[in-house]
């Protein structure tokens, strides 16, 4: 393991397996009466979120607290960043407090990679622009493995706004490394250029795309990133691309339906699908906590020993 978790693109299958196995022990901890372990007592994590996030931020914060890590939340609109401080100076200032983990979400791709170069702390990418969201992919892989017992050989479809989705990118890298067969289902306008056919099959029709799938991941239509007129309206999108219970009938009978949240009901997914017996959306949230604990635990060990506050 490296000291940072910046992306899945550069992770090995062995690293991913180690994280998933470790997460399984942390999931057991979460089912106890006392859901906290002293493992990372005395360590400090900063949650640095430059973009709105409820569940990822909550999940990281709770994961840190369950491991007995001290937590600092850096709320960007009220911080010095709003006064014009550069990212470099913000990081250097935060680091002077003696920080072990920096959890970063930023609207620009590559920011976590930049921070990892200037900081001795373990940097965890909690979503950077349209690049990656590695912990989401790990919790999705954990959930699939928990539900299906394996990942290799499964037929997994990712449906929706692949173009703007960092979740989709991390998932494609992750599931590919673990041996799944991936299918991308989206309108022409929402498939990124340059996806090779040996990486994933591409379908432009939801009903034929879903046929025979073991796992279907719906993606959120990211209204905040839709300025280019990629489709006419959300109503039309739902009509042609929305995941409904009726459409799920084409998939494998024990198909599971996943969504990284937050859901737009009636846009990318219908309530009858989101609340059906196929849905594992709430398990994803629980598993996210266990996976993030595993990542913190494993990265803590990968930092150079004798880490001191940098000058």
């Amino acid at each position: 393991m490296e000291k940072d978790l910046l992306d899945i693109k550069s992770a090995t299958a062995a690293d991913i397996e180690l994280i998933l196995n470790t997460a399984s022990s942390f999931k057991d901890v979460l089912s106890r009466d006392i859901k906290k372990v002293p493992t990372l007592r005395g360590k400090t994590a900063v949650n640095l979120f430059f973009e709105p996030s409820t569940r990822t931020k909550t999940s990281f914060e709770l994961a840190e607290k369950r491991l007995s890590t001290d937590v600092v939340n850096f709320v960007v609109p009220t911080s010095s960043v709003a006064k014009g401080e550069t990212l470099y100076d913000t990081i250097k200032t935060i680091e002077s407090y003696g920080i072990d983990f920096i959890i970063i979400r930023h609207q620009c791709s590559g920011v976590p990679h930049f921070i990892s170069k200037i900081s001795n702390a373990s940097v965890i990418n909690a979503g950077d622009g349209i690049n990656e969201h590695p912990t989401q992919a790990l919790l999705d892989a954990f959930t699939i493995k928990e539900q299906k017992g394996r990942i290799a050989g499964l037929k997994i479809a990712i449906v929706g706004d692949i173009l703007h989705s960092r979740v989709a990118k991390s998932n494609i890298y992750c599931l590919k490394k673990l041996g799944a067969k991936i299918r991308l289902i989206a309108p022409h306008t929402l498939i990124p250029a340059g996806i090779e056919h040996d990486v994933a099959e591409i379908y432009h029709d939801v009903e034929s795309g879903i046929a025979g799938m073991d796992v279907i991941m719906a993606l959120r239509i990211q209204q905040e990133r839709q300025s280019g007129g990629f489709f006419s309206s959300t109503d039309e999108y739902f009509k042609f691309w929305g995941l409904t219970l009726k459409r799920l009938g084409k998939a494998s009978p024990d198909v599971i339906v996943m969504h990284p949240g937050p859901m737009n009901r009636g846009v990318e997914i219908a309530s009858d699908a989101a609340d059906s017996r196929h849905s594992v959306i709430n398990s994803q949230v629980t598993n996210g906590l266990a996976v993030r604990m595993a990542v913190l635990y494993l990265l803590d060990n990968a930092r150079p020993k004798g880490f001191q506050i940098s000058d």
Binding site: V37, T39, Y297, N301, K305
Partner: peptide
Amino acid sequence: LDISFYRDDLNRRKSHPVVRKT
């Protein structure tokens, strides 16, 4: 019982112990 999460020597070891099932 797996005691990995309760060890007092996590910072002294070359690698964190492999976590097993409690």
